[in-house]
Design a protein around this nucleic acid. Structure first.
Lengths: 104, 104
DNA sequence: AAAAAGCGCTACTTTCTGGTTGCATTTATC
DNA sequence: GATAAATGCAACCAGAAAGTAGCGCTTTTT
């Protein structure tokens, strides 16, 4: 398992950040103030969360005039997907499904 | 996005726990001492990590005699997968791929 | 040119997390 | 029955994380 796997999942492991990703689902760039609106948190808090997502490669930012616009980076999420696949590959076959069927 | 999504990703967001899941890839139950061996950490530390994985529903345990044996719970990982799909569903089509192609 | 909007950066507080140690308990073994 | 093995539980500690507030800088807006 690669070293950057854990940071990606850690970035996803926060309700606020998941909500942010939800807001970015449209694939369009959004400014920080816009993302802060209705979050119940301060602008700096949201900014920090966006930085974490950026660090993990899940999000991307562009500075346009006086505002920073964030958008999803599909490759990042794709990477998370492939890591999950690595975890489950072993029993992700007929036998694996059989085992999970018997459990509990 | 469901409330239990973040805890699952948070549980995955630690190198030690990812390594533990790696060790459980064979689908077989493993005792704590066994999982501790070669980890460089104390038994209690590993035990705590397993508790986190259990809490997130990624792992399952059975007490057999004097030892607790842990094994993967495929449904948990499957759930993580579906949550990731929720995040990316919107731009997981031809248009989405086109956008990601243009970026950077 | 003055005011306001949008950010970034730093400092600070509080809570969570990962890790340790020590001790009690249950189960195997001799 | 005594000893060793495998856990569970609780207390404790240091560092990271989530949050706030304040200040200064750049870019719009009026």
């Amino acid at each position: 398992m690669p070293d950057d796997a854990a940071p990606i999942f850690a970035a996803l492991g926060d309700p606020t950040r998941l909500a942010l990703l939800g807001r970015l689902q449209d694939g369009q760039p959004h400014a920080i103030v816009e993302l802060t609106a209705g979050s119940g948190l301060s602008r700096q808090a949201i900014s920090k969360h966006l930085a974490v997502l950026h660090e993990a490669g899940l999000v991307q930012s562009r500075r346009v005039g006086r505002e920073s616009r964030y958008l999803v980076r599909p490759q990042g999420v794709q990477q998370a997907r492939s890591y999950l696949a690595m975890v489950s590959r072993q029993w992700d076959d007929a036998l694996g499904r059989l085992k999970s069927f018997v459990e509990d």
